[in-house]
Amino acid sequence: MSDERGPRDRLWQVAARQRGYFTAADALAAGYSYQAQRFHRQRGNWLRVDRAVYRFREYLDLPSEDTDQFVRWSIWSRDRAVVSHTSALAVHDLGIANPAEIHLTVPPGFRQQNSAVVLHRARLTDEDVQRHSGFQVTTPLRAVLETAAAGMDQDIVDSAAGELLARGMVSRRRLLHAAQEMGARTELAVERALRAEAE
């Protein structure tokens, strides 16, 4: 059965799952030649966000979400970046994290760079990652552990671990065991957080 939708409908369907963002490759697959893409950029129908990353202009008129920026970075990384560390804590609304920087975990061989993000290299398992609307994010437990492992402010670790426990998302024993598996620095920060939570 042939697809009777036009290029715009096909591209819109892709972009709608990504808060209006899409790539030049998405546009090409939807039926826009490079010449047609240039036309839409020049007319202001598509807003250039980054090299070969665009957004439909109409999305500027829609209510934005705090997580829109993460969708953009997911597309930039070709879905290889996972929102992590304090950025993941903010997505999960855990503790007092309000990061000025965007933290992403990427595979060890990832080569792209951008000064607007902080890249951490690690191999994440399926158990470490959750799918969010248009991007991937580390789980609440993993977000607490990697924040502790990175030596970030102890108050942030304390508040996030406290909320993780208060919400019943993990037991104290599981949290401490997972911290031990990540190394001495993580274990120490989590032990401090557990002491603070018990006071």
Rank of each mutant, 00 (worst) to 15 (best):
I75N: 05
A90M: 07
T67H: 10
P99I: 02
N114T: 14
A148I: 06
Q113L: 11
P107W: 13
T147N: 02
Q69F: 14
H132V: 10
G134N: 08
G95R: 05
D68R: 10
I75L: 11
L89M: 01
Q112G: 04
D93M: 10
L124D: 04
I96Y: 02
V106A: 10
F70V: 01
G109I: 13
V144R: 10
V137S: 10
T139E: 04
D93R: 12
S84I: 09
W76G: 14
Q130S: 14
R111A: 14
V106H: 03
E101L: 13
S115H: 05
E146F: 02
P108F: 07
W73Y: 04
T138K: 13
R80Y: 10
Q69E: 15
R123Q: 08
L141Y: 01
H85T: 08
L94D: 01
H85Q: 11
S74V: 05
E101Q: 14
A97H: 04
H92T: 06
Q130D: 13
Q113D: 04
W73A: 04
R131V: 12
S87E: 08
T86N: 12
D126G: 00
G95Q: 01
W73H: 05
Q69C: 13
V106K: 08
T86E: 11
H103Y: 08
R111Q: 11
R121L: 05
G109V: 13
L119F: 11
T105F: 07
N98I: 11
P108T: 15
T86I: 09
A90Y: 12
A88T: 03
D68W: 09
W73Q: 10
E101P: 01
A97K: 03
R142K: 14
D66F: 09
E146D: 15
L141H: 07
T138R: 07
T139I: 06
V82S: 07
A148F: 01
S87F: 08
V91C: 09
E127R: 08
H120W: 13
V137C: 13
D68K: 11
T67W: 07
T138E: 12
D128L: 02
L124A: 11
V106Q: 07
D68I: 03
L104V: 02
I75P: 02
A90Q: 15
H85G: 09
V129Y: 05
D66P: 02
F70W: 09
L145Y: 00
S84T: 05
E101C: 12
R78S: 15
I75G: 05
R142A: 10
N114Q: 05
D66Y: 12
I96L: 07
L124R: 08
A88R: 07
